[in-house]
């Protein structure tokens, strides 16, 4: 790689590694694993850098590498160290500010129990704020697959958390529905 490219790549890494790490962490639920994942994805981005140039292209490329690598890691390693449960503890349904924290913990635990593709789809759609098309690109799948993965993920969360937890706000639900029409609120 040319010296100028190396310097641009270094700039990109320093500017975006933190954000990429956060997204990766949400997908895998483990900070160290997320670091390994981003490190691996950045190495792939480094290889592709001469043909990416524009940092926006680089970020999209790196995000895709993170997502597809995360999914394949989980598949290869058959990580089943967290088992799905039928229902989470009742404290998630308490009222008040503390209840909000508890609800988030419950949502977080339930997220960790989703299959990796479903978890990745939710992170890309509701944390990264990607469109369905962008999410499909990042996951290396069809838009229809994103729709079904998001829908299935939300349905599973709903089943695990019970009906009182408002996973999506009215607006988020309407936005999601506009795009695909089958999201379970």
């Amino acid at each position: 790689m040319a010296r100028g490219d190396r310097s641009e790549f270094a700039e990109f890494v320093h500017a975006r590694a933190g954000a990429l790490h956060r997204a990766a962490y949400l997908m895998v639920g483990d900070p160290q694993l997320a670091q390994d994942l981003v490190q691996e994805a950045l190495a792939k981005t480094y290889v592709a850098w001469p043909r990416l140039r524009d940092p926006r292209n680089a970020e999209a490329y790196c995000r895709k590498a993170i997502t597809t690598t995360a999914i394949s890691w989980f598949r290869r390693k058959s990580w089943h160290n967290e088992r799905p449960t039928e229902h989470l503890p009742d404290e998630s349904r308490a009222a008040g500010p503390e209840a909000s924290v508890t609800e988030r913990d419950a949502v977080w635990r339930a997220l960790q129990q989703l299959p990796p593709r479903q978890r990745a789809a939710l992170v890309l759609r509701f944390y990264e704020d990607l469109t369905e098309a962008q999410t499909a690109e990042a996951m290396g799948c069809a838009v229809g697959t994103v729709k079904s993965q998001v829908s299935a993920a939300l349905a599973k969360l709903r089943t695990q958390l019970g009906g009182d937890v408002e996973l999506l706000s009215t607006k988020e639900w309407a936005d999601a529905r506009t795009e695909e029409g089958t999201v379970t609120r």
């Binding site: 270094a10 890494v13 320093h14 590694a17 933190g18 790490h21 956060r22 997204a23 962490y25 949400l26 900070p31 670091q35 981003v38 490190q39 950045l42 190495a43 480094y46 609800e103 988030r104 949502v107 977080w108 997220l111 939710l122 992170v123 509701f126 944390y127 939300l154 969360l157 937890v165 408002e166 996973l167 999506l168 706000s169 988020e172 639900w173």
Partner: peptide, 24 residues
């Protein structure tokens, strides 16, 4: 909604990562 705020909160709570550019 709780989904988005959960994701945001956990992302914000994550410790800063000192990325190792040389090893990349």
């Amino acid at each position: 909604g709780q989904l988005r705020s959960t994701l945001q909160t956990h992302a914000d709570d994550l410790d800063t990562w000192d990325v190792d550019l040389d090893s990349i």
